[in-house]
Amino acid sequence: MTLTLLAGSSITAGYGDLVAIKDVSVDLGEGNLLGVVGPNGAGKSTLLRALAGVIPVRAGTVSWEGRDINALSADKRARLGISMVQEGRRLFPSLSVQENLMLGAYHASPAERQERRDQVVEMFPPLGPIMDRSASVLSGGEQQMVAVGRAWMSKPRCLLIDEPSLGLAPIIVDEIYKALPVLQSAGVSIVLVEQEVGRVLRIADRIVVLHEGTVMHDGPAEDFRDRPDALREAYLGIAPGGKG
């Protein structure tokens, strides 16, 4: 049994009057890749944001290595080693690619920063020649590479990735997905949120299905690895009139 790195136990969170997730428990084992799938509006992004500290939890506990971190702000959690790639990439459009990456390693020494920058280029070779380009003019794929790269720059122990394939051509998505096992083998634990289950099942260790803010299924990914349709049916079936 692996040690639990990041866990949410019975957490409830939302925005204003809306409760987006209710009584959700997940845990991410050290070195694991946890896939979180579910239809649009199931509360996947909310779960990630609550784990990262972008929004507060209204009930329940987020813990890091067994320690309650509910009171820690997002920047403090980032410094613990929790890094997040938000949906839509969310780069800093005023800054260049290089500057975007460097901000990822804000607290590192200049030498470390340089070293990790080189690792990012190794991971995503297309970024090499466009380091000085403004982030506001990048293609979607380039943006996603910078976003994942920026998260890597902070030398995270845990990476939360929200819908990396959204709006990208399949060939680019392949590129991104190839990087994830590399990150995992470098010791990073990953929570990967996707709407599409196929790719996630192929690389995840564990899979959680969210529906209408609650956990519908939580189990080893290998149960469904060879039959993603079964999983799809499992939650599409209980989501009549869902996104479809």
């Binding site: 997002a74 980032a78 890094s83 997040m84 938000q86 969310r90 780069l91 800093f92 901000l103």
Partner: peptide
């Protein structure tokens, strides 16, 4: 540009 993204960078 993005206060949230900046926080997620640990800033």
């Amino acid at each position: 540009d993005d206060r949230v993204a900046l926080r997620l960078c640990g800033v």
